[in-house]
């Protein structure tokens, strides 16, 4: 009984962290058809922003939820204006340019913070449940990712900005004809996507030892989750994160963490072979 509860929490946690990792990438890809391979480094910078702010004496939750997204969002804004703006509509070129950016940011972080591991302690203590110890911070991550999904859904469905963004997503030329500049919309979207990446990196920072190359661990998973999710933003993100998260945890508990990771990757290959348009390309069509 205790074990099944622990496994349930672990599964929810795996799904939640996949959603968290992929949300920023999904917003940028879903709205702008831009694959940002520097996404992992945006998360890494979110982590460093948090740790720096905490070391300067800021409350850890303020640092994670306010400062990190703002800092990374602004960096994203600069990147969009300088590089990505020139490459809209050229999918492969944006991938290559952002890959270059990712290397650039790794180098920059190494020069500023040094090639050493830094970290902060988890702000929420763990507790015992029966014979098992559960990390209390896992619940915080689940909470944040649920809040994140609800917030994105709310913004897209219920606000005027969301309406404009969805319109530009479907027909950029029509949105332009109605007087909304797609250039501005893309800029704002990229800012939001980067801020989400920063938030994810900040929230996950206490769980991992942060090094300048930490981003590499996230990018592949985020990339896979978003592509496997397919064209719908929220439905795709949720369905593919659930699928991969559950597979990962089942194999982790049954065999070992490494096999869990490998099973996730193999599942991704099989899934893309069977549904080359992603999950929402075949099911839940036309949903958000």
């Amino acid at each position: 009984m205790d074990l099944s509860f622990v496994i349930l929490v672990e599964m929810l946690y795996a799904v939640a962290s996949l959603i968290l990792i992929s949300a920023g990438l999904a917003v940028v890809f879903g709205m702008m058809k831009v694959i940002n391979l520097a996404h992992g480094e945006f998360m890494m910078m979110g982590g460093y922003a948090t740790i720096t702010a905490v070391n300067l004496g800021v409350n850890v939750f303020v640092a994670m939820i306010v400062i990190a997204p703002l800092v990374v969002g602004l960096i994203g804004l600069v990147v969009e204006r300088l590089v990505i703006r020139h490459l809209y509509g050229r999918l492969v070129d944006t991938m290559l340019a952002t890959w270059g950016l990712s290397l650039f940011f790794i180098g920059l972080a190494t020069m500023i913070f040094g090639n050493t591991t830094t970290g902060i302690s988890t702000p929420i203590p763990g507790f015992a449940f029966g014979d098992y110890q559960i990390n209390g911070y896992n619940f915080f991550i689940i909470l944040v990712s649920v809040a994140l999904l609800v917030a994105v859904l709310f913004v897209l469905k219920a606000t005027r900005a969301g309406l404009i963004a969805r319109g530009a997503m479907q027909r950029a030329d029509m949105a332009a004809a109605l007087g909304y500049s797609p250039d501005r919309i893309y800029m704002a979207t990229f800012f939001c996507g980067s801020a989400l990446s920063g938030l994810a990196g900040a929230v996950l920072a206490p769980l991992v030892g942060l090094v300048p190359t930490s981003g590499g661990a996230y990018i592949a998973k985020a990339f896979i989750t978003v592509i496997a999710g397919g064209p719908s933003l929220i439905a795709g993100l949720f369905s593919s994160a659930s699928f991969f998260g559950v597979i990962n945890q089942v194999f982790t508990f049954a065999i070992s963490p490494v096999i869990g990771e490998v099973a996730l990757l193999v599942a991704a290959v099989v899934l893309l072979r069977l549904l080359p348009q992603g999950i929402t390309g075949s099911f839940f069509k036309g949903k958000l």
């Binding site: 290559l96 270059g100 950016l101 790794i106 180098g107």
Partner: peptide, 10 residues
């Protein structure tokens, strides 16, 4: 080193 490689690519 990585910084320069990235910059070259971009």
């Amino acid at each position: 080193n990585t910084l320069i490689t990235g910059l070259i690519l971009v």
